[in-house]
Amino acid sequence: MPSSTTPMTADFFKAIKLDEIDNSFQQELLDNCGIDLNTCLECGKCSGGCSNTHIFDITARQVVKLIKMGEVDSLLKMDSLWTCVSCQLCVDRCPASIDIPRIMDYLREVAYKNQIPATREQVLVFHELMLGHIEKGGRVEEGFLAMEFNLKTGDYFKDVFDPGMKMFFKGKVNPFTPKMKKRDETRRIFKMTSLRKG
């Protein structure tokens, strides 16, 4: 017996009111990135050859469609944002040259700015650590970055023995990378482009 709070019919396929669709994000993409989603032919060539489509929760073609349907909230929370490898296959194959990697960057930036949690926290942690390196030192020291990443994610021994130690003994890891000098210049760039205040 359905309880009194359970509706007799579930609205899985409740009609979308076309005239209530919010197109502002589509317009924003056009204004800020010069990407016109009205050129999309809905052919699926983007998602058909996408490197990671098999693990995407929302495929490239669906990303374009959902923007046009005004469903941006679900895009800002999607897992695909953090599994897209920016391999540029989709944009080069798109018969309308729609720059989907740029759309993904744009969505990620909006999500990050609005502090919407990343479904793959470790990806965001890695990005942030890397940017921290560049902000402080102007360059990235890969060995230290990997160590910090392990500390931060609590996976202390990730890659330490294999391939970490192997790399160390092969002399791959360079503890003496040349430092950048005018670090105030990169700090200025970070300060002036900061997305999250404080």
Binding site: S86, D105, R108, H127, K182, I189, L195
Partner: peptide, 25 residues
């Protein structure tokens, strides 16, 4: 001389302006 990191995946993933600025320098 005194080049800075290109910003890699991290910068273009999260901050377009930062990514272009790092390249511009």
């Amino acid at each position: 001389e005194d080049w800075n990191c290109c910003g890699a995946t991290a910068a273009h993933s999260l901050n377009h302006k930062l990514s272009v600025s790092l390249g511009a320098r």
